[in-house]
Write a protein that binds this DNA or RNA. Structure first.
Lengths: 193, 193
DNA sequence: GCGTAGTCTGACCGATCGGTCAGCGCCTGG
DNA sequence: CCAGGCGCTGACCGATCGGTCAGACTACGC
């Protein structure tokens, strides 16, 4: 009888815990968020959290992996689109939307990536940042280009989370989206030729 | 025996501890850095750290206060300069240099400000960010303007720390400085009228 | 020499950390 | 009916957290 290593954590409880954990990790940091706090916020016991996810690191990995996979798929899909740069603006819009939909994960990767480099999925995510540079720009040959990309990504990630607690209404979010598309396009597009 | 200049033994150790703590807080976060780690890195015991600074929070405050004070002085000095916008570019350069000189503190304020809002000096520092907006722009009336400032500040703060571990040579730092001046000027200046 | 102030440390404290484990109640298939 | 798996929990573990305290050592004024 084959013993399945880890059963699929796609239950309702698992998804609920992932969402809560992702939010708390983004707001207070991985080290600054305890399993007890996550359990309390979810209305479960710490033991129950550890029942669904074997460890704190597994919970973190499960919470952030979907966003990493979506970003991977997105990067794979835009390679050919970017060669014909007529769709460049549309791709930037899609990219911003993807970041907005996964703003908590993006914030964690940008702001805690170097700290959490010992967690495998974070190394994978940081590698994706390099792919973003290679996709939108031509290999980022000069430090100035790397800096423009870094400012755009980190600045966008910060704004996406920082603008959240102050009364996010739907129209406000649209305004944020539009402004982000403008500023990121301005920073990213002039670098391609 | 000649009169030797007044030695401040406490100041040496204190300054050393402040510098080490600031670096570790910026790299691994306030919650992610223990007093034991700071003591080990400095070659002292944890008790000795707590002798010089009564608590972890006092150490953090002592480490980050100088940068906050410098930024306050800077903001006070540029108020009249910015009215005559001929010096606007020069002020941006000064601002970037100030951030570069205090890049660790800037990174902490930007990326951990909301988490550490219960520490008084962090609230003060976050208030300075609003003053930056009021200084460079005209009260930041629209969300789009706030977002541009947020992207510029957070992006710059991220780049300043992220570009550090990869072999910062003097010429590289100058290159970073120049690129930052360019991108921040581009993001900030069009908002003033 | 003696007292004293400054510096530093190890032993120790309660609290909390991530994680383990035995066992609880509940639901369901046989 | 009941055997057993599943979801969940409290009790408990060793380690580490921030912080306290009594003393050891040094240097200096008297």
């Amino acid at each position: 009888m084959p013993i399945q290593p880890i059963t699929r954590p796609q239950n309702d409880v698992g998804a609920e815990l992932r969402a809560i954990a992702l939010e708390m990790f983004a707001e207070n940091g991985y080290a600054g968020t305890s399993l007890q706090q996550i359990a309390d916020a979810a209305g479960y016991s710490k033991s129950s959290v550890l029942y669904h996810f074997g460890s704190k690191e597994q919970l973190f990995t499960s919470a952030i992996t979907p966003a990493v996979e979506k970003l991977t798929v997105f990067l794979d899909s835009i390679v050919e689109k970017l060669t014909a740069d007529t769709e460049r603006d549309a791709v930037v819009v899609q990219f911003i939307d993807l970041l907005l939909e996964n703003r908590l994960a993006a914030h964690i990767v940008i702001n805690q990536g170097q700290t959490l480099s010992d967690i495998p999925v974070m190394d994978e995510a940081r590698g994706l940042i390099d792919r973003i540079g290679e996709s939108f720009m031509a290999g980022l040959p000069t430090p100035a280009m790397r800096i423009r990309l870094g400012v755009a990504l980190a600045g966008a990630a910060y704004v996406m989370v920082a603008s959240r607690p102050s009364a996010v209404e739907v129209e406000d979010l649209d305004e944020v989206r539009e402004a982000l598309v403008d500023v990121v396009s301005e920073l990213i597009t002039p670098l391609s030729r």
